[in-house]
Amino acid sequence: MGLEFNTETFRNDFTFKNSPRAIRRFPFPFDRDDYMYSVNMEPHVPGRPGSVFEHMFDVDEHYVAEMRDRAQVLADDPLRCQSLPHMELAGWDLLELIMESKARDYPQWFELHKNGNRWHWINRPMEIEQKFTFLDPTTLPCGPMEYITRQAQGDFTLQDQRDDNLWIEAGMVTTQADWSLDFDIGMSFHEWHAPVPKAHQMGVFDRALKFLLKLQHGAPVRRFNWTMTVDPLLDTSPENYPKWGPTKTTLTPENIGNRQHLRVELQTLHRLPRSNAIAFPIRCYLIKFEELVTIPKWARRLHRVIRDIDPELSTYKGFIRNRELMVQYLSQFDDGAPTSPGWWPDE
């Protein structure tokens, strides 16, 4: 396949960058020149070859470095991975989903051999080989959710379904857009979304919950979310906010192209077969402004979205302070030409 894994960091010297290939396949989240909240869900079916939608779980050039960063976050703060006692079965469901998907979609990197409940897992990029008994937690070095999500890019939460509601009761959360699993674990759907402005009044969460309660096994769905992050920091947690918050004050017209990143979450939702829980992978993609503007359509469109966004949204997303600077920088790349519909780059 020829794809190599980058040696790069998401902290300290921040050597993260995207190759030209990674830039072209970046999941640019805006399909038009403006943005407002919506439920915006669509079936998570295989998409264009080479795109981040090609496979159930996208594995890209950042895989190994991201997993190294996750291990560091967990060493610093073990509360980023938690599972309430009744969620273990959902953890096994998730492990099965990820192992089967990766072994099927990337046979050059991952293998899964089954002999009844005796499983043999090989993860070549991370040099892991594990023989274990499916559904027997004593045969893994840690719980099943933690085990597999230490080997899968993106955050993961597991939602139990009862009383016509979803309850966030397990998760691996180290690449989050400023929310705390440790605080939110155990909450109902509306409770953990409570701090989001406007969307409740718009009925977005009522509709989303109604939709998700009926989610079927084998018919996953996906949506985008996005925000802005200074420096390619995966761990923008509330826990560490005093450490990364101050970096927002250090942007200048000279460094913004290199240090300001659009942060996109590809969120997918999967009904799990044994537990009836819902798995919610939240995959984070970062792109520097100077990388993004190499795609002329995206540069024009991002300029217009940021210029015209509702101030309440830019406040909640935490970039109101630098919005003018962003608009100034991006405006150089917007000649006013119309943009084509949809998010794909023009050929």
Binding site: S180, F183, D184, I185, G186, M187, E191, A194, P195, P238, Y241, P242, G245, P246, K248, T249, R321
Partner: peptide, 22 residues
């Protein structure tokens, strides 16, 4: 002090107010 409340912790959430401007 946020109004965000966890029943599991029986607590509201407190977030650093001067992180960006110490």
């Amino acid at each position: 002090v946020r109004d965000h409340y966890s029943r599991r912790l029986a607590a509201f959430q407190g977030v650093n107010i001067d992180a960006e401007d110490p």
